[in-house]
Design a protein around this nucleic acid. Structure first.
Lengths: 230, 230
DNA sequence: GCAAAAGTGTTGTGTCTACACCCATGT
DNA sequence: ACATGGGTGTAGACACAACACTTTTGC
């Protein structure tokens, strides 16, 4: 039990990458960058790069600044860290979100790809992308994370379409409105959106109450006795 | 937007540490190790060490082998990775769980500490420990993770006490049994535990149906229409 | 019989889905 | 008037907490 297996000291290349997601063209898409150099020359990869004298979050923000204007990133959280089997390359992945409707200028070697139909990727970046997608889908259900995908203001049917696209299945406008209002996630702006040429009742305009991540469904079934869920 | 801030290339020390938790002596405790060398000589730290030519999970398992018999680790998952502000030391933390009742032999410089009353720790290991504790508490509510804390078989009141200790608040035996049986997390072994000298009805003996992590409460409030929760 | 411990029955509350219905607008 | 899209009312299913009650044992 005290015997230490021999493990040669190795040098590690530490890098940060980001799964940047946005709803665009009726699909949930991820920002990928086409590698010029080996290994995996020509394959698509997540944006990112080497860690410098900085924290991980500053590193990924710095690397993303070359691809997306940082002010357009409405959410950023750490996903997962992996090392290849030889421990030579250590990669920390982040999840970043961009509001729908924005169209950040991106370099020529960079493009958006539907996250449900990814091309062949460099390294295991496809796995990171799927993991980011799944994290987003889970958090849309029990947090207010929709704020990071939606424009500042919107109608319920616009939001319904956004959620349906991000989640990958249909969502009922009725129930979406009920759930988000009951939880206090949405508030009315008081404005209405005029109806189009085909008529119809003008839609109420809403916004997210908060623009930071909040857990809105406490799912803690074994909670302390007596007190409210608060 | 194409301007790259100058960031000197730096070398990084990559290490893995683990928040190993166990319910012992009526408290949720974490395994800490007293540092001999600077920095933070004499302070308590999480077990772990440098990454070698290996994946992160193999690295933390290798380092833990010197402290705890690996077969006694019933669960291991990655928590979070942090770098210090100068990016010199990159630390990936794991959460490990040990069944209650076991008493692994640990080296002299290693001891269990109640996770709710931590001593001063080296680096930001106290934050990792609290983050592991919070992750455990959350997952006890919506997964079958109790399997990793509980003995092979147990009565409901033993399990009630275990959950209450791990969660840090009282838990009702009645409702605990209802919830876990309804979700199919627990199954009866058919055995009964004879009552003690003070009498009382013999308790039924249960076990966890699965011994791998499963999500048992789907908390996905915006789920696909029509189909069952499955 | 009585105390102790385990387990079940039952009621009330809140959340969520589904669907019917009403509302406000353009043509 | 009527089609269209937006919003509300309501009933049923379900999960959960709380607590009363029954069951099975030791003394």
């Amino acid at each position: 039990m005290d015997r230490k297996p021999r493990v040669e000291p190795t040098t590690h290349e530490q890098e940060t990458v980001a799964v940047v997601l946005q709803v665009r063209d009726a699909a949930l898409q991820v920002l990928l960058w086409r590698r010029a150099k080996a290994p995996f020359a020509g394959r698509w990869a997540l944006p990112g790069g080497a860690l410098g004298a900085e924290t991980l979050e500053r590193s990924i923000r710095r690397h993303l600044a070359a691809k997306v204007d940082v002010r357009e990133l409405t959410h950023l959280e750490q996903l997962e860290t992996r090392a290849d089997p030889r421990g030579a390359r250590v990669t920390t992945a982040y999840l970043g979100l961009v509001r729908t409707g924005l169209d950040p200028e991106v370099p020529d070697d960079t493009a958006w790809h539907p996250v449900d139909r990814l091309p062949a990727t460099a390294f295991d970046h496809g796995a990171f992308a799927r993991s980011g997608r799944d994290r987003l889908r889970a958090k849309l259900s029990y947090t207010n994370l929709g704020f990071a995908l939606a424009p500042e203001t919107f109608t319920i049917s616009e939001l319904r379409e956004l959620y349906a696209t991000a989640l990958g299945h249909e969502v009922s406008a009725t129930n979406l409105q009920r759930v988000l209002l009951r939880r206090g996630v949405l508030v009315s702006t008081g404005d209405r959106r005029p109806s189009g040429r085909t008529g119809g009742r003008p839609a109420e305009v809403f916004r997210f109450r908060a623009s930071g991540l909040e857990i809105t469904d406490q799912f803690a079934v074994l909670r302390p006795p007596g007190r409210e869920t608060d």
